[in-house]
């Protein structure tokens, strides 16, 4: 691993640690409502200060997602979005922005493309890594090898139910950052963060030196401010996707998500990040 040059993701988290600023990871479903719209929206998010953009690959059976992202997946599939199409989107984005791009997918579309074919195509397109919702380190041997060979990050999830032994395994399998699920459940917004979250993040911190991003249920500036003292980044998904769902046009959607992202990034800048020396 040390032979690989660091990805844009790793470099961005290094910069964030140096500045003591909480990062903002922004999720959108690619192809919602169309791939051309996703291009505009992603560029607007990058412009608004998103530190990493997660591009969701729509899947027919998104078991880890709540209703907002489920509907987004349906819209994206209805207009014919495929994994190949999402990779083309990455390629187009990469000619216009250097924002770190993480592919966010269920396993089956990746498996059908072929793990090595996927890694090669993602690297060629200019993606920085992937997060596969429904594989854990146990089943990820070949996938990790394929990704590593192309210099791509593999981000894995840590959950409130993960034991310390599992956290250690997840930390070993992850590169770029580690994604902590804030509560048991599916994606979607909630009023308050789980009370158990600080203890969970501390357990993850004990298992890894990687940056930690916290997601699921984060939608408001006060959530982001709270995370400032705790994590390296906040992941916002359903709250952005809901803006896209409400918008009447691609331009309006891009504007709405940018406004939301700017507000959240402002809170992130105001929040006090954890003050540990950079490693």
């Amino acid at each position: 691993m040390s032979a690989q040059p660091p990805t844009r993701i790793t470099r961005r988290f290094k910069e964030l640690r140096r500045s003591g600023e909480l990062g903002l990871v922004a999720y959108i479903t690619a192809g919602d409502p169309a791939l051309e719209a996703s291009e505009q929206i992603a560029l607007a998010l990058a412009e608004a200060g998103a530190d990493v953009i997660e591009l969701g690959v729509p899947f027919s059976d998104p078991v880890a997602d709540g209703p907002v992202v489920q509907r987004a997946s349906e819209r994206a599939l209805r207009c014919g979005t495929t994994l190949g199409g999402v990779l083309d989107l990455v390629k187009r984005l990469r000619t216009k922005t250097q924002v770190p791009l993480l592919l966010f997918s269920y396993y089956n579309p990746v498996l059908q493309m072929g793990l090595h074919e996927f890694a090669a195509a993602a690297a060629d397109a200019g993606a920085d890594g992937a997060l596969i919702t429904d594989i854990t380190p146990e089943e990820a041997g070949e996938y990790r090898g394929a990704m590593r060979a192309r210099g791509l990050d593999t981000v894995f999830l840590a959950a409130p139910t993960s034991t310390d032994a599992r956290l250690k395994m997840i930390a070993e399998a992850s590169t770029g950052f580690l994604y902590v699920i804030s509560r048991t459940g599916v994606t979607g917004t909630k009023d308050a963060l789980a009370e158990e979250l600080p203890a969970l993040v501390r357990r993850v911190r004990a298992a890894t030196a990687l940056p930690i991003a916290v997601g699921f249920g984060i939608s408001l500036p006060e959530h982001v401010s709270l995370l400032g003292g705790l994590a390296d980044a906040a992941v916002v998904g359903s709250a952005l996707v809901a803006e896209i769902e409400k918008a009447q046009s691609a331009e309006a959607a891009a504007k709405a998500v940018a406004t939301k992202a700017r507000m959240l990034k402002e809170a992130a800048r105001r929040g006090i990040s954890r003050r540990e020396p950079t490693r």
Binding site: V63, E139, A158, T161, S162, I181, T184
Partner: peptide, 12 residues
Amino acid sequence: GGRYVPETLMAP
């Protein structure tokens, strides 16, 4: 076979 689920379900 195997086990392909979100991490939340692994320990359970």
